[in-house]
Write a protein that binds this DNA or RNA. Sequence first.
DNA 1: GTCCATCATAGATTTTATCTATGCTGTTGG
DNA 2: CCAACAGCATAGATAAAATCTATGATGGAC
Lengths: 292, 292
Amino acid sequence: MMDRYHLRYFLAVVDHGNFSRAAAHCNVAQPTLSVGIAKLESALGTKLFVRTNQRVELTVAGARFLNYARRIEGEFNAAQRAMAQTAPAALFRVGVLGSIPGALIARAVAASLAVDPSLRIEIVDGSERELSAHVARGRVDCAVTLIDRGSDRFEEELLFEEGYALALWADHPRAAEAVVQGEDLAADTMIVRRHCEALGETSRHFTERGVRPRFSYRSTNDERVLALVAARLGITIMPDCFEAPGVARPRLSGFTLRRKIGVAYTLESHASGVSTHPFLQTLREMAPALNV
Amino acid sequence: MMDRYHLRYFLAVVDHGNFSRAAAHCNVAQPTLSVGIAKLESALGTKLFVRTNQRVELTVAGARFLNYARRIEGEFNAAQRAMAQTAPAALFRVGVLGSIPGALIARAVAASLAVDPSLRIEIVDGSERELSAHVARGRVDCAVTLIDRGSDRFEEELLFEEGYALALWADHPRAAEAVVQGEDLAADTMIVRRHCEALGETSRHFTERGVRPRFSYRSTNDERVLALVAARLGITIMPDCFEAPGVARPRLSGFTLRRKIGVAYTLESHASGVSTHPFLQTLREMAPALNV
DNA sequence: GTCCATCATAGATTTTATCTATGCTGTTGG
DNA sequence: CCAACAGCATAGATAAAATCTATGATGGAC
């Protein structure tokens, strides 16, 4: 039975000229799109594309079907838009990267609720990978996550850019310095932030300098990590935007990795005006202060 | 994400005025349709129906959506039809009830292939229940099965109507009689045709007459059953249309159950002209001879 | 009151879209 | 001419979703 997603796959192939790019644009894997088109062709009883491995081109039947497909997909969108006007108080669902301070998000939520108490906001956190999946499948309206990672699957908007720095307890021997040499930390015990995107880079950094750190704690909970740093259990490396009383944040010499945090949307959700949501407006106001 | 089947459910509810009938018309269970409509409403962000337990009626938003829904579903069908014209040599898939003689179907296949050797026909057999599911899900274009069973889920066409009769080996003491009394078979061993729709009725018939038969064989394979009847392993009851050398078919007195065999289509497949297929034409020509 | 018709909900089941991994086939660059 | 590559297809496993059965809730009819 011909179904809506078949039309989307078909149109994507027409618009992008090959299956692979079309798949990326639909946020699915290439084989998925491949069997999707095959299903459509079988439902219609006609081949729609001639596959050469240089490019795909429409058959005569495919060209004829294109008219219908465009019209139908257009009507779906028109219906959706028309209904959206009547729709009351939409729930705003946003995914947030686990390695972004909860306090930051909490402030943004509080501020936007202060603007409009009737807002309904839902936060879900996860890894970069999980968030991509959520955005792609429409389980969230957008995600606050790492951006500029080369896969142009989503519409992206930069919020802030930052580096990474050490987290030491306030009276650690090196706490007062602006920049610390990795070699000077050979005797320290480290805490592993298991979900951190910089994990690989960090261990490489120390290995290259002949430092083989011991580990006292592994966690995905950054708030707890900060508390334990303050409690002198160990030191760690984390993005600049983290801060806590009793924790100093000197730079680690030669550690130049940076990350860009921004908002990722699907094309549709971006087009449907999600990006003007007060929560995101608030985040945009807060963001410049976090650039380092 | 709004999908095509949502539209079909929605339109069915509008056209039939309540969820239960709409579900029957869509060949799905009532809860399925219930959650389907709920999904659609959530996708659109608006309630589409006001549910009273007397009837459902459209909300304002629902009435507005109706225009889009009808147009889109219409376009889907138009596209399907338009493409079907180009489509080459369609495969004809037909489900056949297990308790219909294979020889009958084989004759029909042979005859229609004689008319047009380019025909591509695919036969699948199964129980009445299985065939319903196949028709409903579009896995077959139609099914040759029991009809007139009260559930007007499908378009039905009567082929022939018949009763049930005994199957005895040719020189069985009662083989020459036209009608046999159940009581006279008390000493006989019976074969159970496990897939037979008359199974319950048969055992009730004997129980009511104080006959408690012994069983020598249970099978779903009627050809083998007939061979074993001829081989004097046991006797059985089967629809009139079965025949084999060495097997006599006297009536069983008081056993009045009858069955109607016909073709069941979905509305769409019927509309798309499946019923004019040579295979079905052949069956129609053969059918009158089978009325008993 | 009980019965009946209607829709909603919950949990299990089945189906199906999707993914990962891999194969195949031309094309390109060395 | 061969290796690397880019592009689509296939297979098996996985995950998601639609669907089913069974049951509950509600209101009208008798």
